[in-house]
Each structure stands twice: as structure tokens, then as C-alpha cells.
């Protein structure tokens, strides 16, 4: 094989009600085969009930160089955390 198969990112939903989470990546020639490989590589031990595969080339990612510009400004904005409320008694999960 002269060139390598494209890279796919794999997302698995561990069980109903939870969101798909990124579990890793793999190489495959097409989407159906990527799903099959993902099933073999990442759900061998009943890790999931649903799989997404996404071409890695289609993912737009933030750059490490932009880390300061992107994420530092949030550091001093504590008012964005919903911690300034009186939580009524008996409300456990807010």
C-alpha cells in the first residue's frame, strides 16, 4: 500500500443517557470500515452502545499558541460561576 489510510477520531457513548466521548483514533479506508474498526478496537469489552467516527482532517482545533488568548481571560471572571445564589434546602443537584 503506497499511502496510509486516513485517520479517524472515534467517539463512543458508554450507555444511554450519556454523551459520546472521545476515546481515540484509528486508520480506515472509508467511513463504514472506520466504524467496523472502531467497534473492534474500542468496544471489545462492552464499552459502548453507540459509535461516531469523524475524519480527523475535518476537525478544526484550537491551537496551543492561542491558549493564552482563548482561555486566560476567563480566569478572573468568577461571576460566571453560579455560586452567588442561596440554594434552597432540599435541592441537591443544582
Amino acid at each position: 500500500m503506497s499511502e496510509q489510510w486516513p485517520l479517524w477520531e472515534v467517539f463512543v457513548r458508554p450507555r444511554r443517557g450519556l454523551a459520546h466521548g472521545h476515546v481515540g483514533s484509528l486508520h480506515a479506508p472509508d467511513p463504514r470500515m472506520a466504524l467496523q474498526h472502531a467497534r473492534d478496537v474500542y468496544t471489545r469489552r462492552q464499552e459502548g452502545v453507540s459509535i461516531w467516527v469523524v475524519p480527523a482532517a475535518e476537525i478544526t482545533a484550537s491551537s496551543p499558541d492561542e491558549k493564552d488568548a482563548y482561555f486566560d481571560p476567563a480566569a478572573d471572571k468568577v461571576y460566571r460561576h453560579p455560586t452567588f445564589y442561596e440554594v434552597p434546602e432540599g435541592v441537591d443537584h443544582l
Binding site: 486508520h27 480506515a28 478496537v41
Partner: peptide
């Protein structure tokens, strides 16, 4: 031919 296919065939 590829590691992924290796796993598939063994599976």
C-alpha cells in the same frame, strides 16, 4: 495489511 485489519480478522 494494517493493524486495524489485523484486529478485525483476529476478532
Amino acid at each position: 495489511p494494517e493493524m486495524e485489519e489485523d484486529i478485525a480478522l483476529t476478532n
